[in-house]
Design a protein around this nucleic acid. Sequence first.
RNA 1: GCCGGGUUAGCUCAGUGGUAGAGCAACGCACUUGUAAUGCGUAGGUCGUGGGUUCAAUCCCCACACCCGGCUCCA
Length: 661
Amino acid sequence: MSEISVLLPDGSSRSVASGATVADLAASIGSRLAKAAIAGTINGAEVDLSVGLSNGDAVSVITADSDAGRHVLRHSTAHVLAQAVLQMFPGAHFTIGPAIEDGFYYDFALPNNQTFSDDDLAAIEIRMREIMKSNQPFTRSEVSAEEALAIFSTQPYKCEIIERVTSGAADGSDAAEVGDGGSVSLYRNSDEFVDLCRGPHVPTTNRLGHFSLMKVAGAYWRGNEKGPMLQRIYGTAWESDTALKEHLHRLEEATKRDHRRLANELDLLSFPSELGGGLAVWHPKGAIIRKLMEDYSRQRHQDGDYQFVYTPHLANANLFAKSGHLDFYADGMYPPMEMDNGTYYMKPMNCPMHCLIFDSRQRSYRELPLRLFELGNVYRYERAGTLHGLLRIRGFTQDDSHIYCTEEQMADEISSLLDFIMSVLRRFGFNDFEFNLSTRDPEKSVGSDEIWGKATEALREALDRHGVEYKIKEGDAAFYGPKIDIDVRDAIGRKWQLSTIQCDFNLPERFELEYVGSDGARHRPIMLHRALFGSIERFFGVLIEHYAGAFPTWLSPEQVRVLPVALAHDEYAQAVVKQLKKAGFRVEIDHADEQLGKRIRNAKTSKVPYVLVVGDDDVAHQSVGVNPRGGEVERDVSVSDFIARLGAEVAEGQLGDLDVS
RNA sequence: GCCGGGUUAGCUCAGUGGUAGAGCAACGCACUUGUAAUGCGUAGGUCGUGGGUUCAAUCCCCACACCCGGCUCCA
């Protein structure tokens, strides 16, 4: 028998029999690898294990416990989901079912606009397990478009995909379904079930099984809100039961951090339904944190040569007509108030008002960059279904600034903004940043090519100067200019978009803003919008989840709780409280009318950073027992020592990074 | 806005076509405790709002409000 030679990922060559498949190669390397293999790559392209090798191929084996392997598992599980649904719901149409982060989904259109119930989900999962157990092979074939249309003649969505692909109108999601060649690739795993798919898939359905169907949801066909609404089933799938369990555990942990739950448990704020949707009231404890955030923000802006301004919550419609926002965003604004002297709107943004301030008198180039800053309250009528706790809210406060500068100043200004942003975010325990540069959408934009080019270049230059990696989001800019968005990762690795720096060529034009240059001529300034927190509300929501409600001492609404062991120690405890308050700390006392253990538990569940227990010894020695959040109890600490340590901790928090774990 | 699900005591949640229950919290009494839940007792709800069906609705139906999970959107 002749042999061929293939190249392995480590650079070595290996001889295998001519006609060997990826599976054969894996088996020749080791039985363990053969068992773990679910797909492979040949010359960089992902393939099924059953694909034959050619002499000189670069080959790798994909195992289930890799990202690529889990992707294959998830996609194969999605096929089985579709198979089960088609069996159980005669007349159902299936559409697309990709693998996604942590799992997969599949979209269906059920006859007579039926919807899936939770009971259906459980039944579908059982049927899926039966299919997996029956060990059906996934078999690939390639057919012409005509043949494919015949095979899927009762499946209009599949026909649409085939037609789009063969007519060259396919987008990414179509290509993922069928591949991009002239022919259409299919995967069949029984006589009755076949799906369009590029693959690869696991060799047989019994390689699947560590999965769970999670939820059912509505989803628009092709994401088009005017198109039909489909029924989507989400699932998660993993390489082992352990990995599945770990994932479900992570979800539980994330639920415990939910800011809506913690805001309630910690008495920070609430969303009374009497107020209306998407409107919050801040309770005293939440307000303490908010004030500290605002104080810090104001201090940093003052240090950064920003000038503080205030503007009203309402404005005449003419202002928003002039800014152009009424044309673009009227649907997202609270409805107009007809007054006897005109029509008024709640402001959905601060920028037009800041432009009025800029334009209130003649400006010189000597004033630039002119940085106007406001913690500005804005109101946006977000669509009802989009509201989400503090993260998507209708009334909120932006830490908003508009910077007017020259073209030449733009790059330096943006560069220093990046430093400013990261420095502020670090103060709140965020150390992992991701940058996105959003570029022009030629279909939806104002301004000349030249100015777009310059501004995009300035943003890029600033990012390059910082040596940070960034992603380009093609066409994702606002209509008025390119922008940088900054995402942070929180303590459990989730990504949140917070800060933004946006160039604006629209408003200076519309407001005819000018400054007098050193040449004596009038010039139009560049305008930058930027927010660090984004909105105070949203940032606070993210902060709650990041710290899981256990705020660092400098931000904690209650920094210390003093617990007298017994009634006899109450007087001393009150003296300790008095000293701490005098030193500027937020302190409460919990009198001895409950068991000590109970009171400690209460303090811990309230996430108070320091619990001080005081008893006979402490009265005798002017000391306290210190029980820190997440640390060991320390007895006989002198009150003055504790005050000094607490003061240092709070001050450190105000200067440097916080260790968040 | 669209597709689902939900709304019962301050909180977390049971429950029923004949106007309601638990745990925690609150309050009272006893206990005075040295590092994560003492015991006993009391009080607390127009069952989201409005309409309909019914002898009777918290329960069934409709509308609305608000919330949750997604989709779409996000200046």
